[in-house]
């Protein structure tokens, strides 16, 4: 449908430099992937909000938050993994450009999450694109330092901390150190809930199921972070790209 105005070959304007294969392989990966990259998120947007929006195009398998590699807090992007290609395509088709937490979010096909891609690639730890912003929108500046965000920070929203807590133990991610058991847990993600080895041929489907090293139930005082990590990003769905922001380049 709608072939008149869509170039079906144009899957994504971005080429991730971390992708090691050829352009053809990259395109094939995009064409068959059930993962989307979500950009321009607020740092305060939670996984549950993302779940609520993205489950409107189909059952979700997983959400992987993009994290600032220094502070281990969300830095404005994430990966969402679906079960079927159809649901993935609908997410790109419909959700891209809609508003979440007052920001138009961007949704693109992604070639598939791999361990390590959840970290921002900028020098400061966040996304590269945030380091190159020069066109600060005064609205956002006001919003950032104004009472809105202040309230937001104080009253409700703490950046979810994904750090490995020291001394607190908690949940170990992701290869649960149970030997063969690891496989079963992975299998558990299959919505068929089929354990055991019968599904070995289905491995491909679960290839990217390594969870991010999310952990800990620790909350921190946010004040310091506000100084370091303001919501400086402009409101528009600006696409100017430079180094590679987490997943895309």
């Amino acid at each position: 449908m709608a072939r008149l105005f869509k170039n079906p070959d144009q899957l994504s304007a971005y080429r991730d430099r971390r992708f090691l294969g050829s352009q053809d392989e990259f395109e094939h990966a995009l064409r068959t992937s059930t993962t989307v990259y979500v950009g321009n998120l607020s740092f305060y947007t939670t996984e549950e909000q993302i779940y609520e929006v993205f489950s409107r195009t189909g059952e979700l398998k997983k959400i992987i938050m993009g994290l600032d590699k220094n502070s281990k807090t969300p830095c404005g992007f994430c990966f969402v993994l679906f079960y079927t290609r159809e649901d993935t395509e609908d997410a790109v088709k419909y959700i891209s450009g809609t508003i979440l937490d007052d920001r138009p979010i961007r949704v693109d096909f992604d070639w598939g999450f791999q361990e390590g891609r959840q970290w921002g690639r900028g020098r400061s730890g966040g996304q590269v694109r945030d380091e190159y912003r020069t066109d600060y929108d005064p609205d956002i500046l006001n919003c950032c330092y104004g009472k809105l965000v202040q309230k937001e920070l104080e009253v409700r929203r703490q950046l979810v901390e994904y750090d490995q807590p020291v001394g607190m133990g908690g949940v170990q991610y992701p290869n649960l150190g149970e030997g063969g058991g690891g496989n079963e847990f992975r299998r558990g993600k299959d919505r068929h809930g089929n354990g055991g080895n019968r599904h070995r041929e289905g491995r491909k489907r679960y290839r990217d199921e390594d969870a991010p090293p999310a952990d800990g139930v620790k909350r921190q005082d946010r004040e310091l972070k506000v100084e370091k990590n303001p919501r400086f990003r402009e409101k528009g769905d600006s696409d100017e790209e430079d180094g590679g922001d987490g997943g895309k380049s």
Binding site: E47, E48, K62, I63, V160, A211, V217
Partner: peptide, 13 residues
């Protein structure tokens, strides 16, 4: 209970 991912990690583990 921290987040969706934390929850599924507990359930899996």
């Amino acid at each position: 209970s921290k987040s969706f991912t934390h929850t599924i990690t507990v359930l899996e583990k």
